[in-house]
Design a protein around this nucleic acid. Structure first.
Lengths: 97, 97
DNA sequence: CCTATATTAGCCAATTATTGACAAGTCAAA
DNA sequence: TTTGACTTGTCAATAATTGGCTAATATAGG
């Protein structure tokens, strides 16, 4: 229960001296939800990342990367074949390019 | 709509000269479902992989790896930050070991 | 101690996604 | 043109996720 994305968002938000109460409505959610997102208990919708990046004056691609990493991690954590699987996917996407 | 796992299962099943009709009931599903799984249109439940490996006299870890790779691929396909995200996850799981 | 503000936890209904089951379809071989 | 293997489509049932609310906790200042 802890996410790279959420941790980063919290840091960025605090750097901007913004409260949950200020940011949440901009994302059309309540503070409880945003709190959970920062704590990794809920996922932000992918489509909302660009808006959040803008609000936090952060790099969109960085946030997308962390968001994806969390999703991937959810799949392979606790799996003994995790590393093999990641390698397999890396190979596959490299071929596509 | 095409999966490494499904493709491999089909190859293994044919190598064993088994029909969908023979394998499906062992997994408690109908042939239509298994067909879709082999074509990557549905996912097999993770818990069923060991049984399937046994049925097909295949290596369980190989099937798990392919199954995980498909799940991961679903997350990062079409994402420009895919490669970065995979690297980030690799780093993270390496630290845990 | 009291009050105010920020954050978090818990709950449950509503929404969304996935699955199971079946019927009808294609295709190839005989 | 019948049979067997596989595929496709549909849809209700089930499961997972989310939204929204309320109450709890934590911290700081009077």
């Amino acid at each position: 229960m802890d996410s790279q994305f959420g941790n980063r968002v919290r840091v960025l938000r605090e750097k901007q001296k913004l409260y949950l109460r200020q940011v949440a409505p901009l994302l059309e959610m309540d503070t409880a939800q945003l709190s959970k997102i920062e704590k990794g208990q809920r996922h932000l919708k992918k489509e909302q990342i660009p808006l959040l990046a803008e609000i936090l004056k952060a790099d969109k691609d960085e946030l997308i990367t962390l968001w994806l990493a969390d999703q991937v991690f959810d799949v392979i954590k606790d799996e003994s074949m995790a590393d093999e699987a990641l390698k397999s996917v890396s190979r596959k996407i490299k071929k596509k390019k």
